[in-house]
Design a protein around this nucleic acid. Sequence first.
DNA 1: GCGCGCTACTAGCGCGCTCTAGTGCGAGTA
DNA 2: TACTCGCACTAGAGCGCGCTAGTAGCGCGC
Lengths: 333, 333
Amino acid sequence: MADVAAKAGVSRALVSIVFRNQPGASEETRQRVLRVADEIGYRPDSAARLLARGRSRTIGVMFTVHQTFHTDLIEGIYPEAERLGYDVLLSAAAQGRSEEKAVEALLGHRCEALILLGPDAEPGYLDELGKRAVTVSVSRRVPGARVDFVHSAEGKGVRQAMDHLVELGHRRIVHVDGGRGPGSAERRRSYRASMRRHGLEAEARVIPGAHTEESGIETGRLLLAERDRGQSLPTAVLAGNDRCAMGLLMALTRSGVEVPRDLSVVGYDDSHLSHLMPIGLTTVRQDAGLMAEHAVRFAVERLRDPESEPREAVLDPKLVVRGSSGPAPETSA
Amino acid sequence: MADVAAKAGVSRALVSIVFRNQPGASEETRQRVLRVADEIGYRPDSAARLLARGRSRTIGVMFTVHQTFHTDLIEGIYPEAERLGYDVLLSAAAQGRSEEKAVEALLGHRCEALILLGPDAEPGYLDELGKRAVTVSVSRRVPGARVDFVHSAEGKGVRQAMDHLVELGHRRIVHVDGGRGPGSAERRRSYRASMRRHGLEAEARVIPGAHTEESGIETGRLLLAERDRGQSLPTAVLAGNDRCAMGLLMALTRSGVEVPRDLSVVGYDDSHLSHLMPIGLTTVRQDAGLMAEHAVRFAVERLRDPESEPREAVLDPKLVVRGSSGPAPETSA
DNA sequence: GCGCGCTACTAGCGCGCTCTAGTGCGAGTA
DNA sequence: TACTCGCACTAGAGCGCGCTAGTAGCGCGC
């Protein structure tokens, strides 16, 4: 920076003004400074800038590698953050890299706010986090914790999916849940409520699962094993999310079960995957772009007024009907 | 930090020593400092640390959102970087966020080294980058540029896939290429060479494409349209990567073409997607973990000796046969 | 001629840390 | 006693910026 100032024949302060796009420099000088900086290859050091300014204007985003829905969200976070004048730092949780570790990294970089995509951590930990930094949880409700919350109305989404299946004549509808995964509890609850509402209480069955393909594959094996022992297959499965649905589809189709002729499958998320299946996956769409926008806005607004109470945004999901759901097979009638 | 020092009754310098895990503090003091720090909730500010130290010990990783193979790589980068004592900063390119922008962000954070996953930028830009910072390009060769390079032996991978198809009796094998995508040029070249080697020069056909599902879908439409005009379908397609293969599978299956009975499809990457298809995708596996390790190691080693020449790691890919490839249909005989 | 306000610019402190060059002290050695 | 050595610890400069307070110069009104 000193080099730029010297070469442009101005003070360092002026260079600073130019790079911050602040008033106080003539247009002519401005251009000269920028030209010189470009020649030297100068670029403001964000560490020093951050240190001097005391504020980082940086939002840290924790996501889980392989969660395709998260990448959809990230894509939406960038532009909104930029619009509001914030930098974005990504930190991934992965096999061998815990969420805590990912979050610590963000905190160490002095992120002012954290956006956690589908965090899987203890509520206690999240509450503590919320007290230390502005925190937004996406997809996972943390009751009582000091964190903002963005999610889609899981209940509504599940209800739409269930109504769709019931309308198609399904009665034996099972739900593979997402274990402790974000949104799972509500989806499970709503599944049960829907079964009750349709008078199918006796048929309700929740199979413990997770938001992974593996979980879907396992469930497929379980159902097939049951069939081989003489039980009949359910006619429809509501999976915990798209990945689980995909795994299930794979396992079933491989064993000769035809979807949707023999069995219907519905996912959740409308992630990239959903249009990929040859038959297309019927699923519940969460608007990733809108959710990302809300998350960033919550973070920024609470940064402005730290005393304000945590807020909650509930976005309406929408059922997207594709090829994996169809009329219930007659055998079930 | 000053607070911690005061409360523990030592100087700031000592606190610094403790937090850097350096010799020069008695065990007793060490414990006391750590305890006090924990009480206050102190955590070293990485910006200030970075600024003071002059080195960031940070590796910046540029990736493309939605490229599933990239997330596989990221998963491998973290542990290796940690092992070597480096921090990792992620920056994503996405719709509306160019690679340049993503890289600028990393540079602004004073990353010492850049790992670019399948960069799509101009060779000139990359060369410039390579002169300014230690740069490793994964999957994309940049001839003449001052960047390290990690990739798998595209030629070998394609050859294995082609041999596999020819053995199954296929002759009309077309290739959907990946346009300017990383590795595409070599895959294309190797496809042509393989056709020649098997005496199928006359049948060789390259359809321009990209490394996306959309490209696969389009190709599917194209082939179907040709069939409807009376041309016969090829018996096998070698796609540019898994995503393209998936799109193609979807388009074909939806239109009643049965894979692999009517047509075989082979992908490239063995990304997460590949096991997902109900029938399983025959594909060429690139070992993401190993590639990630090499990339990090290249970066760190060249950081130690900046004068050393750029290096190249070529890893052997491996054909993984799954359900999407089968014997050529008899109609083609 | 003087004060006033305005624009264009500068001096220099301080952000929170690291690191070099020390100081003080007790034990070991001649 | 006088010295050296090693250990535990400290003083203080400096990393590259942002920012506050200030200055110089200039036109303007009375």
